[in-house]
């Protein structure tokens, strides 16, 4: 049976009960692409679908607060109406939730230029493994008040707390935005990718693509997204054309590329000392070990 709390208070009660009974829970956002690993499948599903929708959006602040179950597609649509966007755009596509993206710290093609999930999260609300509601961070773009539970929860794979809401940094959509395809062999594509990323006007995305990966949509090479004011994009375009037989491509290819990417998998720390610290963090926030047990430990 799936638990489906309607409020933060109810979620806190469910987790608190599970902790008392030492009953394992598996956190589920949209349930679309977060499958983590085998260990949690045996646990009781705890659906976070009620925490959905925009909570606060003041476009002039370039920040937004949404329920964790809000889909990436909805985040994109809501912000697009104000000519803004959130560059989270994780590998896996737009059907997943904001909460899962933050919980798994899944990056995307824009992360290299515009920031990883940890760089884009301003604050969050979560219920930890003891049933306590934590609200670290805030919704302003600069904040060093207190120890950083926001970074701790980002990428914790729901093993320390169930995220219910997230505040994110947004950007204005660029005035000019073009996608180009450079047909190149793998070695050359790799070189050009490095050069472009190190250029004075780096593209906002620059990914190696393989024909078989995109169901034959485009040939092997590089997919490049230029963005900025018109002059910057024009110069970038000229630069690409000097490097290869660059061809204008459909911007929708980015979504296709993301949808075809393999799921991110949790990784344990490399060294024994950091593994020991990890265990202590887990113990501090989920002493009964009921939240997504097995992952990261």
């Amino acid at each position: 049976m799936t638990l489906r709390p309607d409020s933060v208070a109810e979620l806190a009660a469910f987790i608190s009960d599970a902790a008392s009974a030492r009953r394992a829970l598996r956190l589920v956002g949209r349930g679309t692409w977060l499958d983590a690993d085998e260990a949690v499948r045996d646990a009781e599903p705890l659906a976070l679908t009620a925490f959905d929708g925009v909570i606060e959006y003041e476009p002039g602040d370039l920040t937004i607060t949404v329920g964790a179950a809000t889909t990436l597609a909805e985040l994109d649509a809501v912000t697009a109406a104000h000519h803004q966007w959130c560059p989270l755009a994780p590998w896996g596509g737009d059907t997943g939730s904001v909460g899962a993206t933050i919980s798994t710290a899944t990056s995307g093609p824009f992360s290299h230029a515009l920031g990883l999930p940890r760089d884009l999260v301003l604050g969050l609300e979560c219920v930890d493994g003891t049933g306590k509601v934590l609200r670290p961070g805030g919704r302003v773009v600069k904040n060093v008040a207190g120890f950083d539970l926001v970074r701790l929860m980002t990428g914790a794979w729901g093993t320390l707390g169930a995220i219910t809401r997230v505040s994110l940094r947004l950007r204005a959509r660029p005035a000019a935005d073009e996608t180009w395809h450079l047909p190149l062999d793998a070695t050359r594509a790799d070189e050009v990718q490095q050069e472009l990323r190190r250029s004075m006007t780096p593209p906002i995305a620059c990914e190696l693509v393989r024909e078989d990966q995109l169901s034959g949509a485009i040939a092997d090479g590089l997919l490049v997204r230029l963005a900025g004011n018109a002059a910057v994009v024009a110069a970038g375009r000229a630069d690409l054309q000097r490097r290869a037989d660059a061809r204008a491509a459909d911007g929708a290819l980015w979504t296709t590329l993301r949808e075809h990417a393999p799921s991110r998998v949790p990784r344990r720390p490399r060294s024994p000392a950091v593994q020991a610290l990890n265990r202590e963090v887990k113990h501090a926030f989920d002493p009964a070990g009921v939240l997504n047990p097995g992952i990261l430990q």
């Binding site: 710290a105 950083d148 539970l149 701790l152 490399r270 593994q275 610290l277 990890n278 963090v281 990261l296």
Partner: peptide, 8 residues
């Protein structure tokens, strides 16, 4: 891998 202890 593991938690973002550097971030913390």
């Amino acid at each position: 891998g593991g938690y973002d202890l550097l971030g913390a």
